[in-house]
Design a protein around this nucleic acid. Structure first.
Lengths: 346, 346
DNA sequence: GTGAAAGCGCTAACAG
DNA sequence: CTGTTAGCGCTTTCAC
């Protein structure tokens, strides 16, 4: 189990450790004869050499570790997708992700201690991922380390952030409904005062406006974004004589409630009622019958974008500091399943 | 950003770095005056000293990193719960988890390259977590490192493993039904040849036997463990004149299909039909109406147990090698919601 | 009881 | 173009 070191390679190649280091790291401003390079690389390969990251880290003061603080790792697959995106991007840059689960704090601010745990482990940078789009304030000990926010924005506007393009997603969803021929489109919204609530609503209104469909206040209702409240809202709205022919739901859970309401009222989806959700929670959207057409959140992409940005930040590329100004918006694609059809001819 | 080192502490306390190291690490077989210890600790605290893990790692040849190879991190929250359990246990032992997502390989064996990536990062040990209970064979480069399997067993029987007590879970589920007064209990099983299929069935049969309920083959049906096949199975079984009064479903997705079948047939849950699922996928079980009573898989606990075991393995406690003999079974608790009631008096 | 000093494996001046 | 050498911050013999 004694591992091969740089000196073993040097010896085998008949050169000094310096040369080996230069060759293997492609150190700039250093000219090594091509013939030597080949000899070194061969030696390294035949010995199965791999650098000792701890020694490298100690020497360069760069651990190659990226800390990812994530909320609710164990609740939805959302965190998993962020992790996966971050992981894949990290691997590209030969970085290692260290993940710490953190509880959502009352203040909406990241936990100081969790950040410290990461700092104690010598991470080069920190990623902070929230489970839903919101504003956070960062603990003071996070200052000084490069950082990027995922699915949230910095209250102080100092740290670059990436969030889903909620408006765009809502536009895609409602446009899909309009293009299917719907004009009476209900919106079951969340009643929390979070960005998504307002932005998805804005997208809804925008599409109506663009298509000359008058905004009807009675077609918008809001409640907590859970299945049961969604059911209640849908049940009420669909019981009316002038019920909408389509429903845009704040999220897939509310859509699940709407499915139940529709079933109870004898409305067949999508024949009598079209529904579009938001979030693309596979477990729900793909298992409902019929499959729920919904808008996917770009979790994977946000994770990847964040690491990519971190790499630039670490390399000190000044222009990336500017990113903090405005959060970067990532596209939310529509995932088409079977819950939308043209409205039934009356 | 120049961090305080052991020598700063030494200087401040008026002792040598050796003493500081001894005190801070509680190095055994080393006598340091109590008065000195206090002085050192005070100095460390007031300077905000924390050891440089990279230097420690280099010197001791122990990185304090544990590699976790996990399948399908982005699909269900199951992986998240394993990660959380492992994380919490790791923190107790001042260990850091490095997670790598790995694709399920055709052969059912862990990916060699993913293991190598972990080894290259100097992990002290490896955890391998599969997304469902099965047998795997380990890549050769995993030999030599302490390892523990989560939710799978080693084909070669060399590595300790922890899996859910499937039989016990099934027993809890079916017993719950029997105790509610059911005697005609259908079982919608998976048709894959995996351990859970056989073990859950065994639990089902065992409970029937224990309660003197004759086994009726016509009450057992199997299909792929998805919503739609579950629906089809339930629809057929519940259409019969002598339909069961309760259904035990292989997993929550199949139970979701059974809910739909029941609704279509005008059977109200739990009044006309009781249902118990398996897996406790919150997104499904808690959002169905009524809430689905189901059996939880001990993902968190398996993650924690695995790290705990790894720690013993790393410390070379011989008796823990014996664990490889038989996988450790962890309890699957019943999660009671609202889908079970006594059978309706005919 | 306490301290001096030798490295862990690597990188990066600097010299040749 | 290549080699010598001084540490990075820590642990650990060994001597005092």
């Amino acid at each position: 189990m004694k591992s091969v070191g740089i000196r073993d390679v040097a010896e085998r190649a008949g050169v000094s450790v310096t040369t080996v280091s230069h060759v293997l790291n492609d150190t700039p401003h250093t000219r090594v004869a091509e013939e030597t390079r080949v000899r070194v690389r061969d030696a390294a390969r035949s010995l199965g050499y791999g650098p000792n990251r701890m020694a490298q880290a100690l020497r360069t003061n760069r651990s190659g570790l990226i800390g990812l603080l994530s909320e609710e790792i164990a609740t939805t697959p959302h965190a998993g997708r962020i992790i996966l995106g971050a992981q894949d991007a990290a691997r590209e840059h030969d970085l290692t992700l260290v993940i710490i689960n953190t509880e959502r704090e009352a203040e909406g601010s990241a936990h100081r201690n969790d950040v410290q745990a990461l700092i104690d482990r010598q991470v080069d940078a920190i990623l902070y991922a929230t489970m839903y789009h919101r504003q956070v304030s960062l603990p003071p000990n996070m200052q000084g380390l490069p950082a990027v926010l995922i699915d949230s924005t910095d209250r102080a506007g100092i740290v670059p952030a990436v969030v889903p393009d909620e408006v765009g997603g809502a536009i895609a969803a409602v446009t899909h409904l309009v293009e299917a021929g719907h004009t009476r489109i209900g919106f079951l919204n969340n009643d929390d005062d979070v960005p998504a609530t307002h932005l998805r609503f804005a997208g809804y209104r925008q599409v109506l406006g663009e298509h000359g469909i008058p905004f009807d206040e009675s077609l918008v209702a809001s409640s907590p974004s859970e299945t049961l409240p969604g059911y209640a809202l849908a049940r009420e709205m669909l019981s009316r004589d002038d019920r909408p022919t389509a429903l845009f739901c704040y999220n897939d859970r509310m859509a699940m409630g709407a499915y139940r309401a529709a079933a109870e009222l004898g409305l067949e989806i999508p024949r009598d009622l079209s529904i579009v959700g938001f979030d693309n929670q596979e477990l729900i959207a793909a298992n409902l019958f019929p499959g729920l057409t919904t808008v996917a959140l770009p979790h994977y992409e946000m994770g990847a974008w964040a690491v990519e940005t971190l790499v630039h930040l670490i390399h000190g590329e000044a222009e990336f500091r500017l990113l903090a100004d405005k959060p970067t918006l990532l596209h939310c694609p529509l995932v088409i399943r079977d819950s939308v059809a043209e409205p039934r001819a009356n």
